[in-house]
């Protein structure tokens, strides 16, 4: 499994969190536009991105390139990620996930768990 890390902030921290959970997951850090392009061209299986507001810079270019139906905002300021909603999003075929940087430690493990369960 390959995860491309786009978004705007905390890219290295997201990569470290993924590797901490499962070192076998392949990760690559790119600009938000390049990361979205990697998804569009099938170079990565999933897109993770963080920004201040969760649905803004984290996912904007992914929505623009792969479509809103493949993207999910899993957290926003003051609204923590919800495990049931994350599982549902992955089951529904969402491939790109945006969250706020302060929810990184919650969102990344939830996403990895949901993705592994679905595959």
């Amino acid at each position: 499994m390959k995860i491309v890390i786009g978004g705007q902030v905390e890219k290295k921290a997201i990569e470290e969190k993924i590797k901490e959970i499962d070192p076998s997951i392949e990760t690559v850090i790119k600009s938000d536009l390049e990361a979205a392009m990697a998804m569009k061209t099938g170079q990565a299986d999933y897109y993770f991105g963080a920004c201040h507001t969760g649905g803004g810079g984290a996912l904007a270019m992914a929505i623009a390139l792969i479509g809103r139906d493949k993207c999910e905002t899993v957290s926003m300021p003051g609204k923590k990620p919800n495990e049931e909603k994350v599982i549902e999003a992955v089951k529904n075929g969402k491939k790109a996930f945006g969250f706020t940087a302060d929810h990184l430690d919650l969102a990344v493990p939830m996403l990895i768990k949901a993705i592994k369960s679905a595959n």
């Binding site: 705007q8 600009s31 201040h52 507001t53 803004g56 810079g57 270019m61």
Partner: peptide, 24 residues
């Protein structure tokens, strides 16, 4: 500049759509 200039247009669209965000 990509962060600001992705954030800004989406912030303006949030206003257009009547969406609110909490203060930092």
């Amino acid at each position: 500049a990509e962060m600001v200039f992705t954030h800004l247009p989406l912030a303006l669209m949030r206003i257009v759509n009547g969406e609110n965000i909490d203060r930092p």
